[in-house]
C-alpha cells in the first residue's frame, strides 16, 4: 500500500514539475519529500542488488535461484539453492490464502451487505484494530496455543509445522482483506443497488450480479495485498514452526521461508562472505515478488477506479 501511494504521489509531483512548473514553496517541499521516499526505494533496490552480486557471480544465477538445497553452513557440501526457501514461502502463504480467502470474503459480504449498520459500525473498526496488532503477538499465540491445537487435531507429535504458520498468517491476513474488500463493496454506488432492487431482484441476486462484479477488482486487490502480508511476514513465521530448509509441499513438515532465512542467518553469516551475499540475493527475490504483486494490485485497482469515473 505505502509503495503504491508513494509512487503515485511521486508520479503526480513529477508531472507537476515537468509540465506545469512549481506552484510555490508547498509544492517544492512536497516534491522533495516524495523524491526522498522514492529514492529510498531505489536505494534499497541498489543496496540489495549490489550486496547480492557476489552470490550471483560465484554460485551462478540458475543454481542460486533454482538449486534444490540450502545448506549455507555445511562444511563439506555447502549449497546455496534458494528453491526450498521459495517453496517454503509459497507453501505457508498458500495454506494461509486457502484458509483466509473464503473466510475473509464471507466476513466481507456479511459486513458489507448483511450486518445491521449498527453492528457494522462496531465490527469494522474492531477488525481494523486487529490489523494493527504487532505480529509478535500473533507469533506468541501461534507458538504457545495454536501449536498445541494443531498437534492434537492432526495427531502430530508437535504442531511446529508449516500448517501452524499458515493458520496464523491466515488470521493476520483476514483483517486486511476484510477491511479493503469491504471498502471496495461499500464504494459501489447505492444507485446501482437501487436500480437492481427496483427491477425486482432480491438482495442476493443484487449482491451476486451487480455489487460483487462492480467491486471485483477492488476485492482482487484486497486479496493480493493480504497475500503480500503473508509473504512478507517474518516474526510470526519464525515463532510458529521449525525453520528447516526442506524442499517439500507437506503442510505437516517444517519448512523455511525467505524472510525467516534472512532474519535467522544474517546474524551468523560473515560480513562480506558468500553466505552473506546469498542472503542479499534472497532479499532481491523477495523485493521482486513484492514489487510484482504490488504492481498487479495497483493495475487492478486503477481499473476499478476507472469503472465509476
Amino acid at each position: 500500500m505505502k509503495l503504491i501511494n508513494r509512487t503515485g504521489a511521486f508520479g503526480r509531483a513529477a508531472a507537476r514539475v515537468g509540465f506545469k512548473g512549481f506552484d510555490g514553496a508547498p509544492h517544492l517541499i512536497l516534491f522533495i519529500i516524495t523524491l526522498i521516499s522514492a529514492s529510498v526505494l531505489v536505494a534499497v533496490a541498489a543496496f540489495l542488488i549490489f550486496g547480492s552480486l557476489q552470490a550471483f557471480n560465484v554460485i551462478g544465477p540458475v543454481e542460486l535461484l533454482f538449486g534444490e538445497s540450502w545448506r549455507p553452513t555445511s562444511f563439506f557440501n555447502q549449497a546455496f539453492g534458494m528453491l526450498p526457501l521459495m517453496v517454503g514461502t509459497f507453501l505457508v502463504s498458500f495454506l494461509a490464502s486457502i484458509i483466509a480467502i473464503p473466510i475473509g470474503l464471507g466476513c466481507t459480504i456479511y459486513l458489507a451487505e448483511i450486518a445491521h449498520p449498527r453492528i457494522r459500525a462496531f465490527l469494522k473498526p474492531a477488525i481494523e484494530l486487529l490489523a494493527g496488532i504487532p505480529s509478535v503477538v500473533y507469533g506468541l499465540f501461534a507458538m504457545l496455543i495454536l501449536q498445541g491445537w494443531v498437534a492434537q487435531v492432526f495427531g502430530l507429535q508437535h504442531g511446529y509445522v508449516a500448517l501452524n504458520g499458515g493458520i496464523i498468517l491466515a488470521v493476520m491476513m483476514i483483517p486486511i482483506m476484510v477491511s479493503l474488500a469491504e471498502d471496495a463493496i461499500s464504494a459501489v454506488p447505492r444507485e446501482l443497488r437501487e436500480a437492481s432492487y427496483a427491477l425486482g431482484a432480491t438482495r442476493w441476486e443484487t449482491m451476486r450480479s451487480v455489487v460483487l462484479p462492480a467491486a471485483m477488482s477492488g476485492i482482487l486487490a484486497a486479496i493480493i495485498l493480504s497475500i503480500m502480508r503473508a509473504v512478507g511476514e517474518t516474526m510470526a513465521v519464525l515463532m510458529a514452526f521449525n525453520q528447516t530448509p526442506i524442499l517439500t509441499l507437506d503442510p505437516f513438515s517444517g519448512v523455511q521461508t525467505m524472510t525467516a532465512t534472512i532474519a535467522i542467518e544474517m546474524g551468523e553469516a560473515a560480513v562480506g562472505g558468500l553466505h552473506y551475499s546469498a542472503l542479499f540475493a534472497v532479499g532481491v527475490v523477495l523485493f521482486v515478488i513484492t514489487l510484482l504483486m504490488n504492481t498487479i494490485a495497483n493495475r487492478i485497482m486503477s481499473r476499478y477506479a476507472e469503472a465509476y469515473r
Partner: peptide, 18 residues
C-alpha cells in the same frame, strides 16, 4: 420483489449497471 417486478422505476441520475 413481486411488487417491484411489475412496476418499473427510473431514477434522478442515470444509473446503468457497469
Amino acid at each position: 420483489t413481486q411488487v417491484r417486478k411489475n412496476i418499473g422505476m427510473v431514477f434522478q441520475r442515470p444509473n446503468p449497471f457497469p
